[in-house]
Amino acid sequence: MTVFAAILSGVPTTLLLTFAAFGIGVVGGVPLALARRSPHPLPRLTARALIELLRGIPPIVWLFFVFFGVGNSVPGIQPMNAAIISLGVISCAYMAEIYRGGLSAIQRGQWEAGEALGMNRTSVLSKVIGPQVFRISVPAAATYAIGLLKDSSVAYTIGVTEVMFYANEQSRSTSDAIVPFLMAAFVYVVMTIPCAWAARTLDSRLRKRVAR
């Protein structure tokens, strides 16, 4: 079963790529979401335009833009880095929208209570609202992470040695397109199922500590 072993060897890269990009998104989504809600038009509209473009243009196009486009002018970009950067930046946009949804779901009362207790807006945001937004965002974020895992498959087109790369390679060397790609399909399905289950258990546990 060396075909299967070859395909499995791409799993660490797929996982690394997914988690790195997701991590960037979780962190980078915060300033973007805050800018989106800013009372000042400049940050708000810039953030909005950025989010719309990042979500409206297919990931593979962004990937090519970063690797071939930017990579042309800035020589030496590694495929893996280009992939992490492009998927990471796209994730920022998706996470920003998820956070935005979470923010509006938190009761107004939480803001008012925090301010009535004498906390300034930043403290209310970071100590009262923020933690609740993170908890409320978990299901949507988990769903997004699963989608990201599947989207990471496009990275093989620029040479990243993840699952699809090996599936492609195996299919060419064995002149059999069905088995390697079915194995890749199996691997992806198996990877997403525990994530979906983890998301559901996390969601029910965290949901109990959120005021809606």
Partner: peptide, 18 residues
């Protein structure tokens, strides 16, 4: 659970085998 990309490869490259 299967990425659309994999389905594309299966249909275009795989089906000719059958």
């Amino acid at each position: 659970g299967i990425p659309a990309l994999v389905v594309l490869q299966l249909v275009y490259f795989g089906l000719p085998s059958v």
